[in-house]
Design a protein around this nucleic acid. Sequence first.
DNA 1: TCAAAAATAATAGTATTGCTATTATTGAAA
DNA 2: TTTCAATAATAGCAATACTATTATTTTTGA
Lengths: 235, 235
Amino acid sequence: MAIGIKVTLNKGLFHRDPQETTLGQKIIKHSILLIDEIGFEAFNFKKLAIRMKSTEASVYRYFENKHLLLIYLVSWYWEWVSYLIDINTMNIQDPKRKLKIIIKTLVYASKDNPSIEYVNESVLHKIIIDEGTKAYHTKSVDEENREGFFINYKKLAQKVADVITDVKQDFPYPHALASNLFEMANNHIYFALHLPRLTDVKVENDNFDEVEEMLEYFAFSLLGCNEKENEPKNH
Amino acid sequence: MAIGIKVTLNKGLFHRDPQETTLGQKIIKHSILLIDEIGFEAFNFKKLAIRMKSTEASVYRYFENKHLLLIYLVSWYWEWVSYLIDINTMNIQDPKRKLKIIIKTLVYASKDNPSIEYVNESVLHKIIIDEGTKAYHTKSVDEENREGFFINYKKLAQKVADVITDVKQDFPYPHALASNLFEMANNHIYFALHLPRLTDVKVENDNFDEVEEMLEYFAFSLLGCNEKENEPKNH
DNA sequence: TCAAAAATAATAGTATTGCTATTATTGAAA
DNA sequence: TTTCAATAATAGCAATACTATTATTTTTGA
């Protein structure tokens, strides 16, 4: 992946590749904004078409239905996080520092800069937080998984699991810890904003520092690196 | 809560209390079975009415819509888990043992016995795993939270957080760990069944032992109790 | 430069969904 | 035995989730 160049996503997710046409890019752009505004349940292709001044039928030529569009957006997001992790950890050897950067990237992905004009990464991040798990909590999950619709998420989990294993060779749950870090990163931002009794962190004006700190605490406690071993934070 | 006696749930969740009439109990019973069969998205009151040989209009006299019915079922579930935790930890003093029992209860709630005729707890557990988070991932979460619709879940989180604090006074994230244990218990059963690359545990024929073991590992690592301190498992 | 092909827009239509309303029937309590 | 609440039966309506048809515009490549 590189700026201005397409993210590679499973072709089964769409009829026509939205990244290749301006109408397609408008669909991506406006669906992100509209889902964020009205929520995934209320969102539909008619409203999207009106919003982007096109027609329902034209949207349907790109995506079979709104569910596949959501999987598309979620895959896009994780692919993009994966890319950010790659460039941010490129010259880092120490696996502990790598894991710290991964955590920071998970939490602050939307603040990282290289941006693609038709994707508002910060709003997309909100969608992932609010609606992300709906992408794979359906009756069709097995079939869609077989077709590779969740490959981007699973690959990222593998990538992070590898770093976890580098930190602690004999840690028995690297994949579970990886996916748990993803879920916690999003869940606890959501909890802080909507159900604060379910967490201990606070989130205000897009400041997710406490979430980051908590994820570090969880990860490094589990991996048996106590606080003193970690280098001091610099920000 | 006691056997044969009603679970106490927020009155705003329903028009008419389904626990008080046979038609209401039929709604609960068949909605659990039907949601499990066809999934929450495909589920609606028309299909439910046909299934239970009643009418759509009659179902609407009990619940405003399927979303509130889902919150009702989810609240029922957590209230029931909370009750099981209470009776299972009643005479236990040691907070570590308490936490172990809590974890076992979270994972094996559906196997615990005291049952209510019109609720198939094991199928309800599957619904919570598959659809549970949809109850609070909506645009109306703040309003519904204000009305107390998630009180059962939050109270349980507080109860578990208190035990966590008893285990380790200065643990900085008791609520987050509590809610994370709930989420992990369900998520990793789901992952094991549908997206196994996102976890390290296996689940076969309703045997969740590996999930339980993992949650214990996570909880007690975080709370700084290493394996040797825990009493040996007996099963 | 123009003809063919492809993409999009405009419009319409259909089956299903998510309700509400009306009336009829049953059944239980006073 | 009336009466009152609960339920059933039926209808209907606006919105949703699409599909189909045709018209128009844009692209492309000979």
